[in-house]
Amino acid sequence: MSSGERTVGSGRLLTGVAWAVLLVGLSLWGSGITDLPGGLSGPATGDVAAVGRPLDVELPSAHRPLPPARPLRVDVPSLKVRAPVSARGLDGEGAIDPPPFSEADSVGWYGGGTRPGAPGVALVVGHVDTETEPAVFYDLSALRPGEKVEVTRDDGTVAEFTVDDVRVVTRARFDAKKAYGHHEAGRAELRLITCGGTFDKAARTYTANVIVSAYLTGVRQ
């Protein structure tokens, strides 16, 4: 959904069916059940329709993975996002407990998984909006391959990631392997995730998720 199509204050929450489907996939992936058919081929909507992984974008080589360190902040310069990170666990239903809406300008890192910059796929989630205003990942679908995501870590390093894929994944076409698995084995990869698609007022939830994939391409102190 493009920014011009969004209206805030309709009670759209990063909860409900779309979020539940996302986390069911996470549960399957974490259990090693990743050999699933298909891929992120569901129909994109709005400003995501033209993205994915364009062939005409030259992407840099991957940087070797870093030793594990906890993430402190996520910066997305092109979106002017500068968000503190909190480690989030699972709730009683086995879903990631996202940051509270009172902290809608922060993001949650799945602390039971990979640390950003280390080998594997690190997961970072954030709200798209609250009852009254846009939230941290409101413009996440506007990211394009080749743009940067920076993660400041508690070892004093900044892990620099390059976006290589942006997708809207519908509930019907969700594939845990494609959403959470490596794009290329051996890399340090990152997923930024929020709600997307259209908002179902009756169900009070979005119909899909926006998943931005990136991989480690640099590091600085």
Results as ranks from 00 to 15, higher is better:
171 R>H: 12
65 P>W: 07
129 D>S: 15
117 G>H: 00
154 D>G: 10
117 G>N: 00
75 D>R: 15
53 R>A: 13
65 P>V: 03
34 T>Q: 01
117 G>K: 01
166 V>M: 03
102 S>D: 13
32 G>N: 03
139 D>H: 12
221 Q>D: 14
152 T>S: 15
208 A>L: 03
71 P>C: 09
221 Q>T: 15
105 D>N: 12
20 A>S: 14
132 T>Q: 09
147 E>L: 03
11 G>W: 04
194 T>V: 09
177 K>M: 10
189 E>I: 00
4 G>Q: 13
75 D>S: 15
74 V>F: 07
93 E>D: 08
103 E>T: 06
91 D>S: 03
174 F>H: 09
28 L>A: 14
170 T>G: 03
144 R>Y: 12
56 D>V: 12
89 G>D: 08
51 V>I: 13
117 G>P: 01
207 T>A: 08
80 K>T: 07
199 F>Q: 07
208 A>K: 04
145 P>E: 08
81 V>I: 15
98 P>E: 08
90 L>C: 05
68 P>K: 00
113 G>K: 02
25 G>N: 05
61 S>Q: 13
149 V>M: 06
58 E>G: 09
91 D>K: 00
215 Y>W: 03
186 G>V: 00
100 P>V: 10
119 P>D: 04
104 A>W: 07
163 V>C: 06
177 K>Y: 03
68 P>M: 00
169 V>A: 09
116 P>E: 00
20 A>Y: 07
158 V>Q: 11
80 K>I: 02
109 W>G: 08
165 D>I: 05
38 G>M: 02
112 G>C: 06
24 V>W: 04
124 V>C: 06
106 S>P: 12
63 H>T: 04
34 T>M: 00
35 D>I: 05
146 G>V: 06
23 L>V: 09
154 D>S: 11
183 H>F: 06
100 P>W: 01
203 A>N: 09
121 V>F: 05
170 T>Q: 06
91 D>L: 00
62 A>Y: 02
24 V>N: 10
4 G>H: 11
92 G>Y: 08
62 A>D: 06
17 V>L: 14
7 T>I: 13
119 P>E: 08
56 D>C: 10
188 A>L: 01
191 R>A: 02
83 A>F: 13
102 S>W: 07
135 A>Q: 01
193 I>F: 07
59 L>C: 05
141 S>V: 09
72 L>K: 11
83 A>P: 10
41 S>I: 12
212 V>Q: 02
194 T>K: 09
22 L>K: 05
218 G>R: 05
149 V>L: 04
56 D>T: 13
63 H>W: 03
11 G>L: 02
45 T>G: 11
129 D>K: 06
3 S>D: 13
83 A>S: 15
13 L>Y: 04
80 K>M: 03
48 V>D: 04
29 W>D: 05
93 E>M: 07
132 T>G: 04
125 V>E: 10
47 D>S: 10
26 L>W: 08
43 P>V: 01
17 V>N: 12
149 V>K: 07
36 L>A: 06
119 P>S: 09
198 T>H: 14
137 F>N: 13
72 L>F: 10
200 D>E: 14
99 P>S: 10
58 E>Y: 12
